[in-house]
Design a protein around this nucleic acid. Structure first.
Length: 378
DNA sequence: GTCCAGGACC
DNA sequence: GGTCCTGGAC
């Protein structure tokens, strides 16, 4: 295994030219590629972290309509930023861009810096995102390594080690720097990502269409299926949870998720580990076994301070969060007695119509829709 | 239904 | 090295 990877000048030129011609002919026209506005580039790059292009596009358009510049974002309430982020996931990204916007307004006179090292100081901006903003918006010669380029670089180098190891990371960043041209490094980086995303795909890359297959070690060796080495999947833990929409005088109780919890900063219906051991039959409207019902009522009292009338089972939602596979049992219930006490957690009573204005997780949103429909047409 | 993709930060 | 989230492909 080689410790460094370097190409001769001639090969480098051929690679850069082939890639650039291919990108000009075949690159997708994406909303954030029509601009060099660092604000738009920055927001798009944050949205694109851990998120696919197709999912990002409508969010990006809405976000830019609502917050067209960094000042409007800094002025906004965090809750309104989270509301625009609803459904995109990884909500710390939304809290971080709001925080960073205020730092840029307060300490950088509203000007996004062009230096990758400075960019990396902002919350939510790591080495990749700093390089992306610096190169795309300012055409600075900053290398990038993210999922698409990681796969592409590993194959170009024929790197069969673990790309997540420190040795692998060192190789990748070194390679990214090595191939980066002086002219239009931003376009070059975009082209690399585009090639990784479209041609050099994880399964069955379309090597016949690749403009640089002549430079590709993995293509030469026929090792595309083994490179890059895939990460081991963490083992999945099943969870059974319950959530309840409690009604009082036509309003429903929400609590706010706290730092360190899932969906921190967003609102939701009281939600907790289900007080039973195995999955229940999935029959909306069906009466719960009496003992299960009693335990549920007792848990609701513990978590909210409220006694409720017999909870009614509405829906089973199956979803996943990181390594957890969750069966979420959704209930509605009518308030009977008590004072709201959710262990110091912020709470509010809202009408079903007001639910649409609250930032909720996707699962809370699903129950909110059921709740709004039921209360409109019970 | 299950599997997979997708960076920052602790 | 573990945690954050969702949607789309299969």
């Amino acid at each position: 295994m080689t410790s460094g990877h370097s190409w001769e000048e001639e090969r480098l030129r051929a690679f850069q030219t082939g890639l650039s011609q291919w990108y000009q002919a075949s690159g997708r026209d994406l909303p954030w590629r029509r601009t060099s506005d660092p604000y738009r580039i920055w927001i798009s790059e944050i949205m694109l972290q851990q998120t696919t292009v197709a999912a990002v596009i409508p969010y990006f358009e809405r976000f830019m309509n609502e917050f067209p510049d960094i000042q409007s974002l800094a002025n906004a309430d965090e809750q309104d930023v989270l509301k625009l982020w609803e459904g995109l996931g990884y909500y710390s990204r939304a809290r971080n861009i709001h925080k960073a916007a205020n730092v840029i307004i307060g300490q950088f006179h509203g000007v996004i810096p062009s230096d990758p090292a400075e960019l990396e100081q902002f919350p939510g901006v790591g080495r990749y995102t700093a390089g992306a903003i610096a190169s795309f918006a300012f055409d600075r010669k900053a290398p990038i390594v993210e999922a698409n380029t990681l796969r592409l670089y590993c194959r170009l180098m024929g790197y069969d080690g673990d790309p997540r190891s420190s040795a692998g990371q060192k190789q990748l960043w070194q390679f990214a720097e090595h191939v980066l041209p002086d002219n239009s490094p931003g376009d070059f980086n975009q082209a690399m990502m585009e090639l990784g995303a479209t041609i050099c795909s994880p399964a069955e890359p379309d090597c016949e269409e690749c403009p640089v297959c002549a430079c590709c070690r993995s293509f030469h060796d026929g090792t595309q299926a083994e490179i890059p080495k895939l990460a081991k999947r963490p083992k999945v833990t099943p969870l059974i949870e319950a959530t309840v929409a409690i009604f009082r005088d036509g309003k429903v109780l929400l609590w706010q998720n706290q730092p360190g919890e899932w969906w921190s900063g967003l609102w939701g219906f009281p939600r907790f580990t289900a007080p039973w051991k195995s999955e229940l039959p999935d029959q909306p409207g069906a009466a719960l076994p009496i003992r299960v019902n009693n335990r549920l009522e007792k848990t609701i009292l513990q978590k909210t301070g409220l006694a409720v009338e017999t909870p009614s089972f509405m829906k089973l939602i199956r979803h996943s969060v990181t390594r957890y596979r969750i069966a979420l049992y959704c209930f509605t219930a009518e308030f009977e007695a008590g004072e709201v006490d959710c262990n110091g957690r912020p709470t509010q009573w809202v009408s079903p119509e007001e639910l649409s204005g609250q930032p909720l997780s996707m699962t809370a949103r699903k129950l909110a829709e059921i709740v709004a429909t039921e209360s409109f047409n019970p």
